[in-house]
Amino acid sequence: MTSERQLVVLAVNGTEHELLLEPRQILSDVLRHELGLTGTHVGCEHGVCGACTVLVDGEPVRSCLVFAVQAEDAEVRTVESLGEGAELTDLQQAFRAHHGLQCGFCTAGFLMLAEGFLLQEPDAGRDEVREAVSANLCRCTGYQNIVDAVADTAARRRGSPGSSTQEAAP
């Protein structure tokens, strides 16, 4: 028994979309397969890996743990909203400069996590960044370069570039 579809209005990346959806369709699926915004990836569908992280009303949220019908009054932002045209944002550039991605599958989730986190915590240092970054899984990088990229972006936005990996000392 499929449930009845209902009309849902979703505001994604500044555009309103009218969609006829089953209530059980999760937001990540709707973004990817109904709206064609395939930059958001799906890695676990139970809210642990964070590959599907998007901004909902400016906050980082697992889009696999939200039914699209629940997002009706919200403003959703996906990785496709970062940058203008081919121009990469400072955060994206920092990921590139620090080699913060290898296969790139988890990357959109980390970018949106970092974007949401830095909006809320612009003064975050490397330790806070590491804790925030621990929300998502990456299987390729070992995280160090992701932490560096986000911490570097935070520092640059504060006007003090150059924060990178610290050598441990006994």
Partner: peptide, 12 residues
């Protein structure tokens, strides 16, 4: 609150 899941979970 810092023990409650991670930021995206806490946000929702």
């Amino acid at each position: 609150m810092r023990w409650v899941g991670h930021l995206p979970i806490r946000s929702r």
